[in-house]
Amino acid sequence: MKALTTGQVVALSTAEAAALSTAQVAALTTAAVAALETADLAALKTAAIAVLSTAQVSSLTTSQINNLATSALAALSTAGIGALTTQQVVALTSGQFASMSTAQVAALTSNSIGAIETADLTGLSTNHIAALRSAQLAGLTTGQVASLSTQQVVALTTAAFAGLSTAQIVALTTAQASVLSTAQVSALSTAAIAALETADFAALSTNAVVTLSVNQIKALTSDQVVALTTTEAAALNSAQVAALSVSAVAALETATWPRSRPRSPTWAPRKWRP
Results as ranks from 00 to 15, higher is better:
residue 52 L to F: 01
residue 111 N to M: 11
residue 41 L to S: 12
residue 109 T to H: 08
residue 106 A to V: 08
residue 71 S to C: 03
residue 90 V to G: 05
residue 43 A to P: 11
residue 89 V to C: 10
residue 92 L to E: 14
residue 108 L to F: 11
residue 28 L to E: 02
residue 130 A to M: 13
residue 138 A to L: 13
residue 49 I to G: 00
residue 134 S to R: 12
residue 35 A to P: 07
residue 73 L to V: 10
residue 29 T to C: 07
residue 27 A to Q: 10
residue 95 G to E: 07
residue 47 A to Y: 00
residue 66 N to Y: 09
residue 42 A to R: 13
residue 80 G to K: 01
residue 150 T to R: 06
residue 23 A to I: 03
residue 61 T to W: 05
residue 70 T to Q: 04
residue 141 T to K: 06
residue 56 Q to A: 01
residue 92 L to G: 10
residue 112 S to A: 15
residue 23 A to Y: 07
residue 78 T to R: 03
residue 59 S to M: 03
residue 52 L to I: 00
residue 72 A to P: 01
residue 137 L to H: 05
residue 141 T to A: 05
residue 81 I to D: 04
residue 142 T to P: 03
residue 59 S to R: 00
residue 58 S to I: 02
residue 60 L to G: 01
residue 94 S to Q: 14
residue 121 L to E: 09
residue 37 E to C: 03
residue 100 M to D: 05
residue 59 S to Y: 01
residue 38 T to H: 06
residue 27 A to V: 04
residue 140 L to V: 02
residue 87 Q to E: 13
residue 95 G to Q: 06
residue 131 A to M: 04
residue 134 S to A: 15
residue 158 T to K: 06
residue 41 L to I: 11
residue 154 V to F: 08
residue 23 A to V: 07
residue 37 E to H: 11
residue 112 S to D: 15
residue 147 S to M: 09
residue 102 T to Q: 07
residue 34 A to N: 05
residue 40 D to K: 07
residue 24 Q to R: 11
residue 144 Q to S: 12
residue 133 R to M: 12
residue 62 T to V: 08
residue 127 N to A: 15
residue 107 A to C: 10
residue 160 A to R: 05
residue 16 E to D: 15
residue 127 N to Q: 13
residue 18 A to C: 06
residue 24 Q to I: 06
residue 117 E to F: 08
residue 24 Q to K: 11
residue 138 A to V: 14
residue 74 A to L: 14
residue 72 A to W: 01
residue 52 L to Y: 00
residue 157 T to C: 05
residue 144 Q to R: 08
residue 148 L to Y: 08
residue 138 A to D: 14
residue 140 L to G: 01
residue 37 E to S: 09
residue 101 S to T: 15
residue 138 A to F: 12
